[in-house]
Design a protein around this nucleic acid. Sequence first.
DNA 1: TTTGTGACTATATTACCATATGGTCACTCG
DNA 2: CGAGTGACCATATGGTAATATAGTCACAAA
Lengths: 206, 206
Amino acid sequence: MMSEENNSPALNRGPVDHDVRDQIVVAAREHFSRYGYGKTTVSDLAKSIGFSKAYIYKFFSSKQAIGEGICANCLGEIEEDVRRAVGEVDQPPEKLRRMFKEIVQASCRLFSEDRKLYEIAASAATERWQATIIYEQNIKMLLQDILHEGRQTGDFERKTPLDEMTMAIYLVMRPYINPLMLQHSFDNIEEAPIQLSNLVLRSLAP
Amino acid sequence: MMSEENNSPALNRGPVDHDVRDQIVVAAREHFSRYGYGKTTVSDLAKSIGFSKAYIYKFFSSKQAIGEGICANCLGEIEEDVRRAVGEVDQPPEKLRRMFKEIVQASCRLFSEDRKLYEIAASAATERWQATIIYEQNIKMLLQDILHEGRQTGDFERKTPLDEMTMAIYLVMRPYINPLMLQHSFDNIEEAPIQLSNLVLRSLAP
DNA sequence: TTTGTGACTATATTACCATATGGTCACTCG
DNA sequence: CGAGTGACCATATGGTAATATAGTCACAAA
């Protein structure tokens, strides 16, 4: 499910469903991934799809808007991976473990296999782009769903208010969710999600 | 208790206990705090204490060595604040709460009241200066002491290995200990330490 | 020996300007 | 009317020459 933006400074312009819009996105992903966001000029994108630079601006309000689209894709893919991993098991405690583990894995994969796109995600986090905010919201909601389910199955305690619980656990995960913080969490990246899952699950015990 | 360095690339030189060494440290703290580490030249320090630049290098092996000294001071002061706060109460669970709360408060205080020194601490963290490593080690040891005590008083569970416990809780606190990560933790800085303390304490319940 | 320095080098930083780039708009073409 | 663009502007960026700075050393004075 793609996250469509319609917020404060409108990112998209012109026809929403248009072949050229998709071409731009494809070319942008390719260029950003290969040369990086900074080294790619809007003219480069235009040239590669055979139009003029001005035409790009019929579809996107700025270069950053294109970057946000690509970034939203990347983060969306991570989100999908996480949802898939979570969906593979039934017990809420195990879901939580999977969620934590897969978030770290998927983020590290982006970092090591597509550094240039990772850098976009990092600067998106620095500058608080919509893509980042939505991604973090979605992850938090996924977490809340798991907690809610665990409460109903009796796996998790029910005294603590659900949103406090969600917030606290989200804060524990944040250093591995946010690309900026991830960079400072590479020490013990192997054990960290396991140890932290254990800690969180102990605190969730009924 | 000051932390003295004698490590890989020796930081100090010449007479350890010397009046001029102290003068340098005092002048450096003043200058770094007012103009920042980058904008302060070694010649500035020399001039302000009435010696030549070359003489500075009789006491410190580099400008960074001076920076490390100042940074170690700042972090040492935070550490002292935390130890004091922890020492004011008796119950290990309350000690943990205090520790978390005071670390956040003291770090935020440095950030808002002495931004320039905070920036040194941040770059010390980026470049993994000794001062940072020692500080983080000390904090971790303080944490372990509290946990150890709590186990003996029966306030905390005893099944989980002590060092796993320490590591996990340390990882929870790290976003508020490490100056680099702190910058990205300002949202919810009020509730975060409380909620996280609650979570940790729930997980520590026997 | 201990205290102290000016003169020196290699590297880092700054200041500058030419160029490149993001972004707009009036306009053409079919 | 809608698809598409060249010419244009203000600002960002990159490269480079000039300057400033970290750090050393041989040496002097006490």
